[in-house]
Design a protein around this nucleic acid. Structure first.
Lengths: 210, 210
DNA sequence: CGACAGTTTGAAAGTGATCAATAGTCGTGG
DNA sequence: CCACGACTATTGATCACTTTCAAACTGTCG
């Protein structure tokens, strides 16, 4: 992949500033270098849906014919920005669209889980396995998480607390996430309506004395 | 648009038969001529999510790098099928991907409504305005609708009944839908959590004696 | 007529949203 | 250095909603 970008420039996007808005089909591409960018759908009922996040390394751009998505900096963000000619390089264009489609299906799969626990678990799992590893910093507010998962900040908070208490998640200060093991998370993500009526002791060796 | 397809063929797809499955990135395109095709995501929790429907005139294909979607005939379907070379015509490839992305965002917007009424209203509205007009036949089962909207067949049934009773929808035999006016539907699609706390008598002239 | 898929309806239960209040965190300025 | 205000996060109580479970009903096709 030709990642030598002829004429690009770095830009610092302050938190909550907009990268591009729907309607303007620009030929600008942005590679996130630092920070997180959120891609939002603003619905007619006033709701904000975050269709996806872009992390360092991700390339985003409004190159579909009729973009619906607004890209905003979820944190202060450093991006590398350049211009392509979709006519000249439809190959790359198709590749990026394909990636975007893939990402959107994944988001849909996560948001389709019927329970808050399952959604959050599936989200964290996807993050850990596909992108950031089992220990990562997620500098997002609960509201951002909520709008991404189709829940409220309250439910996110409660569910995270539950995860911490049950031991699947270790969360140090701020927005640091540490996943103890992926398997319990996977189980939660795939569990149906009824979790497990039995009260289960978290997977801790018997005889702990902490 | 060059709709003259050099070497294509017609095919009849029986109900519930598969057009393509995830993993196989074919270069086959399918234009639906008659019937409805559903594009499904099968999740690891056993759930089926219908990411979209393809109606007569729509062109679909598994041309993204790593397709996640399964295409199945929701009804007995007649398709026109041909092969493209993504290398030779990346232009069309990008255009189709762009369309697919757009459609997926729309589905996400519909599924993001918080209430069954709003989801169903948004879905019917989209169908009526963007595709089929205010009077159309939707030969889908309630389960298909439910899996598309993230609800159960029961909720779909109840909500449709409610729409019929409240007069926004006239539904004759079978799967025929007649939308009386789009505005009430739009209102329902955009309404927040609380519909109308007041108990309202249905729009019937006073003086009934039943 | 009987079998079967699809639809409708009822009652109960579980879950997340909402409302409301409290506590923590951070940056600014006194 | 501390006080203040704004934003963010936590937690409790209540409520509305959809799901679940169960049953009956419809229509179609053999």
């Amino acid at each position: 992949m030709a990642t030598t970008h002829p004429s690009g420039r770095r830009r610092i996007i302050p938190k909550d500033a907009m990268l591009y808005a729907p309607g303007e089909s620009t030929r600008n591409l942005h590679r996130v270098e630092e920070g997180v960018v959120r891609q939002c759908l603003y619905l007619s009922d006033g709701q904000r849906v975050i269709a996806g996040f872009a992390f360092p390394g991700d390339v985003i751009g409004a190159l579909d014919d009729q973009p619906m998505v607004t890209a905003e900096a979820a944190t202060s963000t450093l991006v590398f920005e350049w211009t392509i000619d979709p006519g000249a390089d439809p190959q790359q264009c198709a590749s990026l669209l394909s990636q975007a489609l893939h990402q959107t299906y994944l988001t849909m799969a996560i948001r389709s889980r019927k329970h808050a626990r399952a959604r959050l678990a599936a989200f964290l799992l996807d993050l850990a396995e596909r992108r950031l590893g089992s220990e990562f910093r997620l500098p997002l507010t609960l509201v951002d998480l909520a709008d991404h998962l189709g829940l409220t900040q309250h439910t996110i908070s409660r569910t995270l607390t539950e995860f911490r208490r049950s031991g699947v998640l270790r969360q140090a200060s701020g927005h640091l996430f540490i996943i103890n093991h992926c398997d319990p998370l996977r189980e939660i993500a795939n569990e149906g309506p009824r979790p497990h009526p039995q009260i289960e002791v978290p997977t801790i060796a018997p005889g702990r004395t902490d």
